[in-house]
Nucleic acid binder design. Structure first.
Length: 462
RNA sequence: UCCGACUUAGCUCAGUGGUAGAGCAAUCGGCUGUUAACCGAUUGGUCGCUGGUUCGAGCCCAGCAGUCGGAGCCA
């Protein structure tokens, strides 16, 4: 029984072979008088396999009509190709047609716009560009796990459904089993959540960080890698309602360890994907972003710039550049500022740290100046903020005071404060938007095109 | 959510008030170890929706919807 070989392996074969079995989807067909060239792709790699179908095949009449999108199994000899564009091709002895795609198959043998392909997101992975993108997505996921596992980080599964509606990272999606048309009500008219599934309001997580910290304070170094949900009405090329986030957390670590980890991880992943997905990355640099190779090589070969927030503001003030929002100590950095620093001033990724406490989250560690917190952002060309992290406030009294200052409810955080009450240690971590990393690696400009079935405001298809 | 642009054939687009066009795709035929092959023919449209102005609207006006770009929020 002859077993199927993937096209990626056939094309890598060291020698010709008398008999192979290949399966795939037809990309294009070119006919001669006595035979046809059929190119099939099985998703295992960017390249197609060229099939020679001669008119002595018993079903040549059907083979001659194979349309783009049809699925076939081909048995034959793997031989050296006479044509110049491929090393090997298969001379078919038998072509089994699984399914003939009708003439309204939406993918044509030409370039389609990304906007159109979004309307057929269920079929777009069958194109060169999206096939490449989602092979890279897989390779990048693996690279991330590999990076952390090689360094002894433990993978922690933090919950998707959360009961604290105050993680503070953005608007949340509510999860309920109550009858929306007629919810149970309290005497004062408010909805009676005691009758809901969990007996209280529930939401989809916006971050696993607080849970992750608890496990770092037990297992040492941990990371999470999972879906995250934000109900923000953000209509940009860089935001989705459902996206994947990586959140490492290290016990016995400070902000400098955190920056080292972030830089090592980004550079490791870039190296790994450039190696594993060479053909795919080449396609992106050829057809999507001509500057991609330079950007990736710069990341691979150079360390990141590191400055403080105060220095960043000074650099921008002295730059003479006209910003829409004037850089001034105390402002939150705008997209234009982030991109100026990474794209124009440093021309490589830059890590900015020690931000004013007013513009950062409650759990970030207060610096000795009592003005800034030990927060750090990794800014990269084209994307802006790729990573946001911090050393966490490990001092019980200071953290409690911050929670009070910001008008948050201490009782909601009692479990979180316990980690500071019992054997508190310095610890630090960060959050990385997986899709933003994908955009960095592929040059693809819209987040909707690096996630298989994107969820964005007013858009929930497939 | 705010600002701006766009919406015409299956796809990508042209068409600035007077009988709806091109390229590609598809279909049919020809030719060729071809490379998103090539040559010829054919098919294909309620011009986003609703209303208005006009003798006449794809084109002008208003509303709505969707898409895209930028901004905010952030990953």
């Amino acid at each position: 029984m002859l077993r199927r070989t993937k096209i990626v392996d056939l094309l890598k074969s060291a020698t010709t072979q008398p008999e192979v079995l290949a399966k795939g989807w037809v990309r294009t067909r070119r006919d001669s008088k006595d035979f046809s060239f059929i190119e099939i792709n099985d998703g295992s790699c960017l390249k197609n396999l060229q099939i020679i179908a001669q008119n002595n095949l018993p079903n040549y009449n059907e083979v001659k009509n194979l349309s783009t999108g049809s699925s076939v199994a081909v048995r034959g000899a793997l031989v050296e190709s006479q044509g110049g564009n491929q090393k090997y091709e298969v001379v078919a002895e038998k072509i089994e047609i699984y399914s003939l795609a009708p003439e309204d198959f939406p993918l044509q043998k030409k370039k389609h716009s990304d906007e159109y392909l979004r309307t057929i997101a269920h079929l777009r992975p069958r194109t060169n560009k999206y096939g490449a993108a989602f092979r890279v997505r897989s390779a990048l996921s693996y690279a991330i796990h590999k990076f952390f596992q090689e360094r002894g980080f433990k993978y922690v599964h933090t919950p998707i459904i959360t009961g604290s509606d105050c993680e503070g990272a953005g608007e949340m999606f509510q999860v309920t089993t109550l009858d929306m048309k007629n919810p149970p009500r309290l005497p004062n008219g408010e909805i009676d959540y005691s009758q809901d599934f969990f007996g209280k309001p529930a939401h989809l997580t916006v971050s696993g960080q607080l849970n992750g910290e608890m496990y770092a304070c037990a297992l040492g170094d941990i990371y999470t890698f999972g879906p995250t949900f934000r109900a923000e009405n953000s209509n940009t090329a860089r935001h989705a309602a459902e996206f994947w986030m990586i959140e490492p957390e290290m016990a016995f670590a400070d902000i400098h360890d955190d920056m080292d980890l972030a830089e090592d991880m980004v550079r490791y992943c870039v190296k790994e994907v450039m190696e594993k997905c060479h053909d795919d990355i080449e396609l992106f640099s050829k057809f999507v972003d001509p500057t991609l190779m330079d950007t990736l090589n710069t990341i691979k070969n150079n360390s990141f710039a590191r400055i403080t927030y105060t220095e960043a503001i000074e650099i921008m003030k002295k730059s003479g550049k006209k910003f829409e929002y004037e850089p001034e100590y105390g402002i939150d950095m705008q997209t234009e500022h982030e991109r100026y620093l990474a794209e124009e001033h440093f021309k490589r990724p830059v890590i900015v740290r020690d931000y004013p406490k007013e513009i950062k989250a409650f759990y970030m560690r207060m610096n000795d100046d009592n003005k800034t917190v030990a927060a750090m952002d990794v800014l990269v060309p084209r994307i802006g903020e790729l990573i946001g992290g911090s050393q966490r406030e490990e001092r019980y009294e200071l953290l409690k005071k911050r929670i009070e200052e910001l008008g948050m409810h201490e009782e909601d955080y009692s479990w979180y404060l316990d980690s500071r009450k019992y054997g508190s240690v310095p610890h630090a971590g960060f959050g990385l938007g997986f899709e933003r990393m994908m955009m960095l690696l592929t040059g693809i400009a819209n987040i909707r095109d690096v996630i298989p079935f994107p969820r964005t405001p007013k858009s929930l298809n497939f």
